[in-house]
């Protein structure tokens, strides 16, 4: 009983601390935006370095959806809807969620480890003693880079999954769905608000992943064990939060 209460207490304390930290970051954002070079550097580590995994995964997800969709749709004699099946699944769910999960594993964990190591080797304290605010100099540019990268990566994932190399390759070139039908069905069924909702979702996921990874890194115990724990909990917590938040957002946007 008292154990449960302390777990709850720890959780609330952690959440409160993380919220306070987020506010500190948000306050540092305007200043950080004045230093585009720092953001540029982080965009490279966070965005460009995640590009390959996103492109490859997007392509495979497109292939898988085309194969699975074709099997199911054949039983209803509705293979002409293959394009819209792939496009709707990808744009509404797969692209934002899978990209966010991969991104948490690739970039979020790296961020947590990097910041945790900077803390363990006194680099953050050192900056503070040099009268440089590590939140402005280290944390905020990384947070901004995550916010910019994730929606862009999500769009790239979606285009790869639906486009020539992805679902189109399997559906049209391999399974023989008519090319005009593939695109025609997509045009008829996918609306602009689907795309907008997808991007809103990925932006929300970006805030969550950026927040969790810099928080975990910044408050990691300054030991090798602490850093490894921060890395693991970044991936676990980001993934769970993304999946949970996806349900909430989907329910919210569902009419």
């Amino acid at each position: 009983m008292s154990r449960n209460r302390s777990v709850l207490g720890d959780f609330l304390r952690g959440l409160g601390g993380a919220t306070f930290f987020l506010i500190t970051i948000l306050r540092a954002l305007p200043g950080a935006l004045l230093r585009p070079r720092l953001i540029l550097q982080q965009l490279y580590y966070v965005g460009v370095m995640s590009l390959i995994i996103i492109v490859i995964s997007g392509t495979f997800v497109g292939w898988i959806l085309a194969l699975q969709g074709f099997r199911t749709l054949t039983t209803f004699g509705a293979t002409s809807a293959l394009g819209v099946f792939v496009a709707a699944t990808v744009i509404r769910e797969m692209a934002p969620v899978v990209t966010a999960l991969l991104f948490a594993g690739r970039a979020g964990s790296a961020l947590a480890a990097e910041i945790g190591l900077m803390k363990a080797t006194d680099q953050l304290s050192g900056m503070e003693m040099m009268a440089v605010d590590p939140i402005k100099r280290v944390i905020a540019p990384r947070f901004i880079a995550v916010l910019i990268s994730l929606p862009l990566l999500t769009a790239i994932f979606a285009v790869m999954a639906i486009g020539w190399a992805g679902g189109h390759l399997i559906g049209v070139d391999l399974l023989g769905v008519d090319q005009g039908t593939y695109w025609g069905q997509i045009h008829a069924q996918i609306k602009l608000h689907d795309v907008i909702e997808s991007i809103i979702k990925s932006a929300c996921f970006g805030v969550v992943i950026g927040w969790i990874s810099v928080y975990q890194g910044y408050f990691a115990a300054p030991t090798s064990e602490g850093v490894s724990r921060a890395t693991t909990s970044t991936v676990v917590m980001s993934s769970l939060t993304v999946v949970g938040l996806d349900f909430v957002l989907t329910a919210f946007m569902f009419r």
Partner: peptide, 13 residues
């Protein structure tokens, strides 16, 4: 106006 030298050097890696 003050500097602290950490034992590790605390250089930015």
């Amino acid at each position: 106006r003050m500097s602290l030298l950490f034992q590790s050097g605390a250089l930015l890696t």
